[in-house]
Design a binder for these strands. Structure first.
Lengths: 191, 191
DNA sequence: TGTAGCATGTAAGCCGTTACATGATTGA
DNA sequence: TCAATCATGTAACGGCTTACATGCTACA
């Protein structure tokens, strides 16, 4: 099992990584964890993909399933990271380069085409985006709050998740400032 | 032709939009334009996708091809936006909501898994990212420079592209600041 | 009793990429 | 004459989504 290093897509490693952050999880729980964390700076795979990804990782021997031995047809199936799973993950982390982030920004795209719609609509677009941004930020803030404070030994494991959450919060904050300015520029005409 | 409003993916509208920004383009030129602009906040489709997308848009009657009437097998084929193309685009802009941006951030993902690698590597990851960021920013700055200054009537058409480019520059700037801070926090331990 | 959440999957299909194939034109 | 650039596509395939199917458990 295993073998071909790093022939897996990033999402596989992301899921593998989530498995190192806590204990054994069911596919369902893994999806929930992805929704809580991964979603903000990667993307949370669909439920069905979580299951097929898990199946593939198991095939490669990177995770192992422990069936809940209570007879019913298919009850709960818990996955844990195996030794070679951890090995594959660290190998990926240290022997491959991180790619540059990819941004798909529908709001920026639409702003680019501002000459096709009336100014009111453009302003509405940006203001609406500010609203979504605030919502998102609040969601991430909740996650951040649950990770404890720096120096708190009870949450030492959360050190990196905390850094990443702070990153996200700062990003949302700066996005807010930028869009505020864009709105002002648009209102003041000229550009 | 045309018919089913808004059953096209965003990328189609993005390409359609690029066609409103200037004159008729060949697939090749359209790809170049995407590389100059779209790439920074959406994604520049592969050459092959540009051609197949163009074929589909033509099928829907949203663009029209004008073959270069110089006999050779297949020389240059220029596409222009049709009336219903423009109509479809404005309809899409004004009757559908902009989705929240999607970010795929390999660097943040790896930082999350910082507990699996040694601190030096994490720092290297972030510093390397700062380098890529500076490069990217310089590229975008060049694009921005070519769009002229606010109030310059010679570049009035560039108003929105300019706003979007400024947005991107500010974004890269804030990303830089944030990562600088993260590096400091990591060096100072604790956090 | 029925709805929401837990739990696991299969099937179909689109978006988009890489690899491959082909050929003309321009300039070193 | 050879490489780079212009120019257009086809084929294969991977990632990921939506829609669909199934069934249990807890609780209102």
């Amino acid at each position: 099992m295993s073998q071909d290093l790093s022939e897996l897509p990033t999402t596989s490693y992301a899921l593998l990584g989530l498995l190192t952050l806590g204990d054994d999880l069911t596919g369902y729980e893994l999806k929930q964890r992805a929704d809580r964390t991964l979603r903000f700076y990667w993307s949370s795979p669909a439920m069905s993909q979580v299951y097929s990804e898990l199946a593939r990782l198991a095939q490669h021997g990177l995770v192992a399933a422990r069936d809940d031995e209570t007879e019913p047809v298919r009850r709960s199936r818990r996955y844990r990271l195996t030794g070679s799973g951890r090995q594959a993950l660290t190998a990926w982390l240290s022997s491959t380069e991180a790619e540059f982030p990819t941004l798909k920004h529908p709001v920026a795209l639409r702003l680019l085409l501002g000459h096709l719609i009336d100014p009111e609509q453009t302003l509405h677009l940006l203001e609406n985006y500010l609203g979504q941004l605030a919502e998102r930020r609040a969601e991430l803030q909740q996650v951040r709050d649950s990770l404890g404070e720096a120096g708190d030994p009870a949450h030492a494991t959360h050190r990196f998740p905390r850094l990443v959450a702070d990153w996200g919060l700062d990003y949302y904050g700066s996005e807010r400032t930028i869009v505020d300015d864009l709105i002002t520029r648009l209102r003041n005409g000229v550009t």
